[in-house]
Computed example of a mutant assay.
Amino acid sequence: MKAAIRRKYGTFEAISVEEISNPIPKDDEVLIQVKATTVNRTDCANLTGKPFIMKMMLGFPKPRKVILGTDFAGEILELGKSVSSFKKGDRVFGFLDMGLQSQSELLTIKEDALLKIPEGIDYTLAAASLEGAHYAYSFIHYVSINPGQKILINGATGAIGSALLQFARLFEVEITVTSNSKNFELMKSLGADKIIDFDKEDFTKSAEKFDFIFDSVGKSTFGACKPILKDSGIYISSELGPNAENIFYALTTKGSKSKKVIFPIPFSQKKTMPYILDLLKTGKFKPVIDSTYPLDEISKAYQYVLSGQKTGNVIVTI
């Protein structure tokens, strides 16, 4: 089978597409023919080993898993002897932030890590519904959101941000987002009430104050956002912040009745994926797709994602 390989940490130039042996499923696993996967922020961290903590989790000085990929949508080809929840031909999808080696033609995975793709959802849309939505779930479920509150989402055009905007729209709240001008109409269609053009304005200078600031791209700081938080406002970022300050602030402001930081340690996929599945089924969540690449051009997909210019999800078809 063909697979996207990197044997050392690096940038997109470290990736090669190679022919390797087909995986063989164990008794509690299934063999999947991968139809689509994404190149996402988690994949980029797994590729580069940055921040450094990634190397501690993935292997040091080189990664333990050489095949890239954290999510997939595909079709079951073979069943292990003890697999009972699925059958051959089932359309399934899954995600694991530490890596599924899914940027390949075939993969093996345990049956308890799978969900069936809903009817009417194609492989591309299914693959795009996982990584960004998984992290967006944490922003929403670490806080209590009440009708009438004001939310600001920084970076609402990305995979996390565009999912987060749709999840926040399920509450009776006022949502302000930051976006580039080319995506204004997209932001409105996803439910944004107000839009700040991040190429022209600094959102931290806003005259409004917010109950929640969700930084889905991790490019702000608690200090910069404090002036636009309400007295009991909450700041959540997808990144550690300078010198891992968001972990420190989360500890020191915990229990505070004034402005505080919550660090969104991701929930288990067993918790997030059923939530995503339900919203897909009901049409309340539709992931945004930027562009599509074939497996042979996957290094170009990584180059694009690493540039920080994508909108929503970048798909690799296999």
Results as ranks from 00 to 15, higher is better:
T204A: 12
P51Y: 04
K219N: 14
S84Y: 04
I276K: 02
I121N: 03
P61K: 07
P287K: 01
F263T: 06
K182Q: 15
R41Q: 04
G49D: 06
D122T: 02
T311L: 01
A126N: 02
I276S: 10
Y293W: 09
A128S: 09
E105Y: 14
K110E: 14
S291E: 07
Q33V: 12
T37R: 09
D43V: 04
A36H: 10
T178W: 14
K281D: 07
S129M: 06
D290N: 10
I318W: 00
K62L: 14
L251G: 06
K259R: 14
S291D: 11
C225G: 13
Y275I: 09
V316W: 02
M273Y: 13
M56W: 15
G223M: 12
S256Y: 14
V261A: 12
Y9S: 00
P242W: 00
K194G: 02
Y304A: 00
I121L: 02
D28S: 04
N246G: 02
L170R: 11
E19P: 14
D202C: 01
L68F: 11
D90F: 09
V173S: 04
Y304C: 04
K254F: 15
D193T: 13
I318M: 01
V305H: 03
K281R: 13
A168V: 15
K271C: 07
S258K: 14
G283R: 06
F60V: 00
G218I: 12
A192L: 10
F167E: 06
V288D: 13
A4F: 03
L295V: 10
E18V: 11
E131R: 05
S291I: 14
L100D: 09
D215N: 13
I289V: 12
H134Y: 13
T178N: 07
V34H: 09
K254I: 10
E185L: 07
